[in-house]
């Protein structure tokens, strides 16, 4: 039996980051719920954009981190990179699932359905599956290094799908709304809406950074702990004849 893990200790940088996250979240909430007007066509449902888009953004950022950290791990074999990749991968999977769920809730009043066979939606689900596979591969190895190497390989190969997800809106004829903020037409998004969206993106990014930092420290603690003893192997099935009276 091993001693319970101590929770990661908070550092001054953590406290600063927590305060910045709280402030950015508060600003984003006020801008998104009070200052920004409801959409002329979609009404209040459009406010889901202030969570849906930042969640998707954070997922992309996490998967890019997985790629960079995976490459760095294979080059250096430093487990710190693997921990960064794992922490980012876990958050990326969570954020992708959140973006899909919120998109579905948003789609119900706007498109009239929970789900459409739209390429953007399908490829995002596929992206979720790829990185769920990435996390599953971690349990494959017999030791820490083998699992990390295999996960790094899948993390790099899996990223091939990310540009396809991003550009699917352009490549396929799609029901999904095209990029608004990065559109060449500068006047498509109301200034208050853009400010709310920007604040939400900043808040999500800071919160994601905080979560990943804490998770990395927790993983480092797990690596430092002595390995938990393997569970007792299954005993062979022994069949004995019942003694006859």
């Amino acid at each position: 039996m091993t001693a319970p893990l101590h929770p990661p200790r908070s550092t001054p940088a953590d406290r600063t980051l927590t305060a910045a996250t709280a402030a950015a979240s508060l600003v984003a909430l006020v801008l998104a719920l009070v200052v920004a007007p409801p959409d002329a066509v979609q009404g209040q449902a459009q406010r889901l954009m202030y969570v849906h888009v930042p969640a998707a953004w954070l997922a992309y950022a996490c998967f890019a981190t997985v790629l960079v950290a995976s490459v760095a791990y294979l080059l250096t074999r430093d487990l710190r990179w693997d921990r960064r990749a794992q922490a980012a991968g876990e958050l990326g999977v969570g954020m992708t699932a959140l973006a899909i769920a919120l998109g579905s809730i948003w789609g119900r009043p706007v498109w009239g359905t929970w789900w459409v066979w739209d390429p953007r939606l399908i490829t995002t689900v596929v992206l979720l599956l790829v990185y769920a596979g990435y996390l599953s591969v971690r349990g494959l190895g017999d030791d820490r290094g083998t699992g990390a190497r295999r996960a790094a390989a899948v993390g790099i190969i899996g990223f091939v799908n990310v540009p396809i997800v991003h550009f699917s809106v352009v490549w396929w004829r799609t029901l999904h709304q095209p990029a608004t903020v990065l559109s060449p037409d500068q006047a498509v998004l109301d200034g208050r809406m853009a400010a709310a969206l920007l604040a939400a993106v900043v808040a999500f990014t800071l919160a994601g950074w905080l979560v990943v930092r804490r998770r990395i420290r927790q993983l480092a603690l797990l690596d430092a702990e002595p390995a938990v003893a393997d569970p007792e192997p299954a005993r062979p099935l022994v069949v004995t004849a019942k003694p006859q009276p």
Binding site: L127, G133, S136, V154, G158, V160, N161, I164
Partner: peptide, 9 residues
């Protein structure tokens, strides 16, 4: 689970 999603393109 690994091959099918990555084979989407």
């Amino acid at each position: 689970a690994l091959v099918l999603p990555a084979g989407l393109p």
